Simulated scan of single mutants.
Amino acid sequence: MIMENSSSITVIIAGKNFAPVCDYLKNVLPEISLEMVEAKDLIKKAEEAQIIFPAMARIDEKIFKRAPSLRLVQQWGTGLEGIDIGSATRYRVAVANVPTAGSGNAESVAEWYVMAALCLSRKTCEIRSQVRKGYPWGSPLGQALYGRTAGIIGFGGIGKALALLLKTFNMKILVVDKKPDKITAQNIGVDWIGEVADLLHLLKKTEYLFICIPLTAETKNMISQPELALLPKGAFILNAARGSVINQQALMQAMDSKHLGGVALDVYWEEPPKPNDPILDYPNILATPHIAGVTDVSYQGISIQVKENIIRVMKGKLPLNCANPEVRLKDMK
């Protein structure tokens, strides 16, 4: 037995997406009661839950006041923008996430960015049908990553892992971050690092723009029409952070004007996007279903840290990487 009375722990995953989470949770905590619940049924099901994983669902006061046994809202990853942390604290519920660094998640997301950059550069969206048709053969001309300039917004776990990979392509790497880590940047071989206030300098020189920052009030619509206009014509944008860091209308206008060479999206302004979302109609958009961090290595690493947090809160301790460390946990019944 992994922990005393673990069979009495009721865990809910709020939504039917990210199905592999169930397998990895059951592997590290086989005796828990685990259920994936549609968002519309969450309020009722939350009444018995002790642990909730948001899985893109909104977790707010409507949930907390109906969940007397709830002790922890644990994100399977980093993003906490969908959780009302203030309400969680008032209802004595801890909120925690898993940092990208140290879990394998940062490396997996960085791999997605490289994959996406290569797909856009080699016009994979355009050429998929050519092999079956047999023509045109030997075209189109792709663009090499080698020697190009990459701009990375955000230098946390993902930004650092990405910079390491991009250096193997001999890319020139420019970075902006809220708190520039100049020592790590130098060790990796970053060519220039500045503060967020220096973003305009980065954009003017960037051929591949990688968005690696969380969504906050400060970063919402950070990339809009003025910022997009500063990018060199033909630049590529890649986003596996959160959709709303980029202004959607401004992005579509930049695509309509052919200012951008292409865009890779793993995140959207609404998830999942509607089938008729016009952003999906562009031939040079690479779209994936929020899977940048969905790998065996990432999920194994996250599951180990999640297990530790579940054990901690069920023993009356705060979880690791707690977003509301001031919270007074509910008494054990």
Rank of each mutant, 00 (worst) to 15 (best):
D198I: 15
G104Q: 06
K172W: 06
P136G: 13
S121P: 10
G104R: 02
P140A: 13
R128I: 07
I152R: 02
K167I: 06
G104D: 04
D191W: 01
L165E: 12
F169A: 01
N170Q: 15
G156N: 02
V98I: 01
L162H: 05
F155R: 00
A116T: 15
A116N: 09
I127M: 14
L120N: 02
L145H: 06
K178C: 11
G134A: 04
G147L: 05
V196F: 14
M171Q: 08
V190S: 05
R148A: 11
Q143P: 02
E126A: 08
V175M: 04
L162F: 11
V109C: 10
L145P: 03
K167W: 10
Y113V: 15
A161Y: 08
K178E: 15
Y135Q: 13
A150W: 04
T168V: 09
N170A: 13
K179S: 09
G151A: 07
I183G: 09
A197L: 13
Y135D: 08
M115V: 10
K179R: 13
A161P: 02
F155M: 04
Q186N: 13
N170G: 10
T168K: 12
N105L: 12
I183E: 15
G138M: 10
G138P: 00
K160T: 02
G154A: 06
V190E: 07
K160R: 07
G102Y: 03
L164R: 14
R128P: 01
G194R: 06
M171T: 11
G147H: 07
L118A: 10
V114R: 04
E126C: 06
I173K: 07
G147Y: 01
G159P: 10
L174R: 09
C125H: 09
K133Y: 11
L174Q: 05
K123R: 14
G194K: 08
T149D: 11
Q130D: 10
G151I: 06
M115K: 06
R128M: 10
D177E: 11
I127D: 12
I173C: 03
A163L: 09
E195L: 09
G154T: 02
G156Q: 03
N105C: 08
G194S: 11
V176R: 04
